[in-house]
Amino acid sequence: MTSTSNSPLAALSGLICFVLVVGGTSGLLHEWFGWIHFMGFVRFLVPGGYEVYSYVVMIVLGLAVGAAGDAVTRRGRG
């Protein structure tokens, strides 16, 4: 696997995007179907009683961070 950018910002935004999207999806699956948490540590970021909303916000925020990191990377190349 080759990276199109060697920027530490691109790597960090990619990591944050992955953690938020996968953690939020895992949390939603756990809340709706009772499956185990793949990334159980994200439950400490969620206030009690607002689990579903918080996991949806995590997914949206993760996608936004990923898009912003991609935009910064593209702007730096061109």
Rank of each mutant, 00 (worst) to 15 (best):
C17F: 13
F18N: 01
L20K: 02
V21Q: 08
V22Y: 10
V22H: 02
V22E: 04
G23P: 04
G23L: 03
G23V: 05
G24I: 08
T25W: 14
S26V: 09
S26H: 09
G27H: 09
G27A: 07
G27W: 11
G27R: 05
L28D: 07
L29A: 15
L29E: 10
L29Q: 12
H30V: 03
H30S: 13
H30C: 04
E31C: 07
E31K: 11
E31D: 14
E31T: 12
W32T: 06
W32K: 10
W32P: 02
F33P: 01
G34F: 11
G34K: 10
W35P: 01
W35Y: 13
W35T: 15
W35D: 13
W35F: 15
I36F: 06
H37K: 11
H37S: 12
H37Y: 14
H37A: 12
F38Q: 03
F38P: 01
F38S: 11
M39T: 06
M39I: 15
M39L: 15
M39V: 15
M39E: 02
G40H: 08
G40E: 10
F41Y: 13
V42L: 08
V42Q: 13
R43D: 14
R43G: 06
R43W: 09
F44T: 06
F44A: 09
F44S: 10
L45A: 15
V46M: 06
V46A: 14
V46P: 10
V46H: 07
P47A: 08
P47F: 07
G48A: 13
G48S: 08
G48P: 01
G48T: 11
G48C: 00
G49Y: 07
G49E: 04
Y50D: 05
Y50G: 00
Y50R: 01
E51R: 08
E51L: 05
E51S: 11
E51N: 10
Y53M: 03
S54K: 09
Y55W: 10
Y55S: 03
V56C: 05
V56M: 06
V56Y: 04
V57S: 02
I59P: 07
I59E: 06
